[in-house]
Design a protein around this nucleic acid. Sequence first.
RNA 1: UAGUCGUAGGC
Length: 336
Amino acid sequence: DFASSSLIDMYAKCRSLKDAGIMFERLPIQNVISWSAFISGSAENGHNLQACLLFEQMQQKGVHPDKVTFVCILKACSSVSCMERGREIHRHVIERGLGMDLFLGNALIDMYVKCESLEEACVLSNRLPEQNMVTWSLLIGGHVQQGFALEAINIFDKMNQEGVELDEISFICALKACSSISALKQGRQIHGKVIQKGYELDSFVSSTLIDMYAKCGSLEDARRDFERLPKQSVVTWSALMSGYAHDGDYTAVAYFFQGMRQEGLEPDDVSFLSLLAACSHRGLLEAGCAHFKVMRDEYGIEPTIKHHNSMVDILGHAGFLNEVEDLLETIPFERN
RNA sequence: UAGUCGUAGGC
């Protein structure tokens, strides 16, 4: 029934998985659409195990997955880098003989990329009957992730030569290739193409550009682009601050932090990491402790392992080893 | 008329 499948979809996407589950069980007929909608919603909300269980249950009930279902379940495998299950799905796709379309092919490539098997991702992309900009972006991102940024930039160039359509995400992937190896010259060239396309005000593109310039060590460019933006966000401020923090310029970082607050933007956990990094870099014990306290007490932001690492660094370098031990005792056990 | 692919700031 169309209406009920839409409801499942809506509930699942609205992070009300319990409601989606209740709705689902009440459905008179559970077809491949409603199963897929529920699997997709589960995976999208990070309930990957549930997605996998649903995928199995669906088949036990005699409902066969179609191409869309495979794409949905692959997302769950990708997000937890579960290669075993991913390969199994891949075999399953071939066995069912449903053929391969771009969505399914790209979802498989994404799975291999996220499972760090760039080799298999490349082989698969060559075997696809056709590629689109998503395929290319996946390959660019995969090469960057594996440390082959120059090759990633080559792939981007080839994409241009072949006249493949470029969207915002294609540019973001290419810009990240540049930032990862401080390739300022290539970064500027890509920036030029971004402007030609009129993408420079996109919120993700603009923050990636600022980040690229900051990571390439050109704080002037980062700041110029930042100031040209009609509207800043906590992400663009953070991209800028982390560049200055990298240089150990605590004064600048603190100044920007204030500026952000004056704009009425709420700092988040990442904003504080730049502040703490700058303090750590400069050996600013008192400032570091003060920011750490303000973060928890005034902003209600729970410190993560990364904030704790900075604090251990700050206290340790100042010779406050007992305080380091006290701090370590307050840190709850964290995975990873 | 219903379910699907790649994106930004931490290191």
